[in-house]
Design a binder for these strands. Structure first.
Length: 135
DNA sequence: GCCAACGTTGGC
DNA sequence: GCCAACGTTGGC
């Protein structure tokens, strides 16, 4: 997020899960998304971004030096996609995972379900509003 | 197509 | 670093 904010625009690449890939592929230019930070001291939603391109083949899958390299992908057959995104808003404070969990309107959010492994998921209009209300 | 083993993810 | 959970892989 900090990098995205500084650069304003970034390529969202490296998604290597088919279900998450499908959600990424369904995103349309202009759509907003929440930016969730995981695997850090305070996991939670840190801000908002906007999709600025349709999905296109993820070039990092073809780069041997990339951590996202996929030996099974090729230029002709690359199963992975990336989208371009831009910075919209950084929240004043992280909306922490525990706070998300304690919000009844978010109970159905896949993120909060036991054993969730999805890194990209849809957010309903009601869930979107519920998160914004926590800012 | 089943299913066990393995690898990865993410919270704690 | 541990562990729960689940996706992926590969043998059959």
């Amino acid at each position: 997020m900090a990098t995205l904010q500084h650069r304003q625009r970034a390529c969202w690449d490296g998604v290597r899960n088919y279900q998450a890939r499908n959600f990424l592929r369904s995103m349309q230019p202009g759509e907003l998304f929440f930016f969730y930070h995981s695997s850090c001291p305070r996991p939670g939603i840190v801000g908002i971004g906007r999709i600025v391109s349709g999905a296109y083949p993820d070039p990092s899958a073809l780069e041997p030096q990339s951590p996202y390299f996929d030996a099974k992908a090729g230029a002709e057959r690359n199963p992975w996609v990336a989208v371009d995104v831009e910075f919209v808003e950084a929240f004043g404070d992280v909306i922490e995972l525990m706070r998300l969990r304690s919000t009844p309107d978010l109970a159905q959010l896949p993120l909060l379900k036991k054993g969730n492994r999805l890194s990209v998921m849809p957010v309903s209009a009601g869930e979107w509003a519920a998160v914004l209300a926590l800012r």
